[in-house]
């Protein structure tokens, strides 16, 4: 079984996957940058980053597959992370706080 899928064998699949991945990433920016947009659409687009970011944050913290579950180690790490984010507005310190808290929890055997 080992090594039974080589690059050459999978290349047609990769090209198909690359195409269907690339088109949704490319078409909106290719089209919308060339059009004059109505005010309501510009307004909608201006709120889209916050909406997407909040969705990604919720998904990465509390969704596993189709189950909503906030793991105790994630909840405990999220608190100091959010606090540092709010106080420092510095992304590096924020990420470092989250990772370090999680490492400490793991060392202490807390969480799953």
């Amino acid at each position: 079984m080992k090594g039974s899928f080589t690059f050459r064998m999978l290349l047609p699949l990769y090209l198909a996957m690359a195409l269907v991945t690339f088109l949704p990433r490319y078409l909106p920016m290719a089209v919308l940058t060339r059009l004059r947009l109505p005010g309501w659409l510009e307004r909608w687009l201006s709120f889209l980053p916050t909406a997407i970011l909040a969705a990604l944050a919720a998904q990465s913290l509390a969704v596993e597959g189709r189950a909503v579950r906030l793991r105790s180690d994630y909840a405990l790490s999220a608190l100091p992370t959010a606090f540092v984010a709010w106080r420092t507005r510095n992304l590096f310190w924020t990420v470092l706080t989250g990772v370090a808290t999680m490492a400490l929890l793991r060392a202490a055997g807390i969480g799953t």
Binding site: L53, T81, R89, T94, G98, L104
Partner: peptide, 16 residues
């Protein structure tokens, strides 16, 4: 090393 929390922490930081 807690690295699995790097991306959730990044999203929290950017959202804040």
């Amino acid at each position: 090393l807690g690295l699995d929390f790097a991306l959730p922490a990044m999203f929290i930081g950017l959202l804040a």
